[in-house]
Structure formats: structure tokens, C-alpha cells
């Protein structure tokens, strides 16, 4: 019976959206000047910051250096005040480690690391406010930050969380919907080729919706900061 609460008879969700409607996305690139690339994204009430350092010389253990491509190093962490109940440790718990690994695998597939042998690229994502879809918002923020750093990528990486209620797919879940019973799936996708395994057609359309929004953000940013060159 949880399905009835999440999706009303007229087809409206808890926050008034339709089943396949995405939350409002606002984003900004180049938020921090000291990092090589940075981005801030708001998807509904979930806010995330991503920062990219690199490519640079491998710090710490030289043994991690790969001779033919770059090492990608990710860290996912949440601000202690990001969740409704205060989180004791920002990172270091199992969930953060799992998310960091997920991010690393996602970006290793998209970033053209073979152009940067023996270097390291650091991607750090911080969730400032958590209202569902943490992984997806992180991936979207990290994509914008990597583009801002000028690191070559095959394509955007867009992510979205999708859930199912009574055979109706709901796109872009918020916190209440994630916990309200029913399954959810987070999907990261390279929109143009449709690469990275997809299980549902609806997840793909939701992700393509996200990719359109991110594309707009990057093009607007490009227009704003194009250098005035004299020829």
C-alpha cells in the first residue's frame, strides 16, 4: 500500500511532480579558483560540490603510478550537517568507500586516461545537502568538474535514480521516495552512445533528460568565459 502514497491516483508524486519529471537542476562551473576544475549542482534539494585536481604528478606512493595511463582517485564524502539526522563521520564508513569506488569505476570508463601516463587525477565530491539521489548528483557534479578542468572525456556521464511503484517508473527519486518501499536503481550513462549497462528504458530517458540539462549548463559557461582573442 506504500505505492498509493508515493503516487496519487491523478499521477502526482509527494512533491507534486509527475512520474517521469525530473527535479529542477541548477548548476555552476568554476566555483573554486584554486582547484583545476570545480562545479556545484543542485537537483531539487540535494546539493553537491565536486572538485578536480590534476592531472598532476602522482603523490604519495609512487608504486601506484601506471606507465600507460593516469590513475583516477575519487573520494565521496558527506557534510555532517547534510542529512536530517547528524552524521558522525563525513567519510571513512563503508557506504562512502563503496560510493568512492563506484565513482572511480564510472570515470575510468569515461575519462581518456591513456593521454596522461604516469599522472594522477583526483576527483573529490562533497554532499552539502542530502535529499535523495546522492550518487546521481555526485556523478553529474563530477562530470561538470572534469569538463571544467579541461580533461578529455569521451562523453558526458549523466546519472539518475529511478524507482518503481506498481509498475510505474518514477524518475529522480527524492529521499522520502527512496525510503518509502519499492526498489530504486541508480544509473550512470554516456548519453550519446548509450554505453554503461542499462536495465530499463525509462532509466535511459530520464538520464537523457539529465544530459540535456548538463549540456545547457556547459554551453552557457563556455559562452560566458570565452576568452576575447585578438587575431
Amino acid at each position: 500500500m506504500a505505492g498509493l502514497e508515493l503516487l496519487s491516483d491523478q499521477g502526482y508524486r509527494l512533491d507534486g511532480r509527475k512520474a517521469t519529471e525530473l527535479r529542477k537542476v541548477q548548476a555552476r562551473m568554476g566555483v573554486f579558483s584554486q582547484a583545476d576544475g570545480s562545479a556545484y549542482i543542485e537537483q531539487g534539494n540535494t546539493k553537491a560540490l565536486a572538485v578536480v585536481y590534476g592531472p598532476h604528478e602522482v603523490r604519495g606512493s609512487r608504486s601506484r603510478t601506471l606507465h600507460d595511463r593516469a590513475v583516477i582517485n575519487c573520494q565521496y564524502s558527506m557534510a555532517t550537517f547534510s542529512t536530517a539526522e547528524r552524521k558522525r563521520r563525513p567519510h571513512g564508513d563503508r557506504k562512502s568507500a563503496e560510493m568512492s569506488l563506484h565513482l572511480k569505476q564510472t570515470f575510468e570508463a569515461a575519462v581518456m586516461t591513456q593521454l596522461y601516463p604516469r599522472s594522477q587525477i583526483d576527483i573529490y565530491v562533497k554532499i552539502l545537502q542530502s535529499d535523495g539521489g546522492n550518487y546521481s548528483v555526485c556523478v553529474n557534479a563530477a562530470t561538470l568538474a572534469v569538463i571544467d578542468a579541461g580533461i578529455p572525456m569521451r562523453d558526458y556521464v549523466c546519472a539518475c535514480t529511478v524507482g518503481f511503484v506498481d509498475e510505474t517508473p518514477l524518475a529522480d527519486l527524492c529521499y522520502a521516495e527512496e525510503g518509502g518501499g519499492g526498489s530504486s536503481l541508480a544509473l550512470a550513462l554516456l548519453p550519446r552512445g548509450g554505453q554503461i549497462a542499462l536495465l530499463q528504458m525509462d532509466a535511459m530517458t530520464a538520464c537523457k533528460g539529465v544530459s540535456k540539462v548538463l549540456d545547457e549548463v556547459v554551453r552557457q559557461h563556455l559562452q560566458d568565459v570565452s576568452v576575447l582573442t585578438r587575431e
Binding site: 569538463i147 569521451r154 558526458y156 563556455l222 570565452s226
Partner: peptide, 8 residues
């Protein structure tokens, strides 16, 4: 006149 592109 500038041709601006994005990845992909």
C-alpha cells in the same frame, strides 16, 4: 564566429 563544442 567562435565554434564552441562540448565533449561528445
Amino acid at each position: 564566429h567562435k565554434d564552441l563544442v562540448v565533449p561528445g
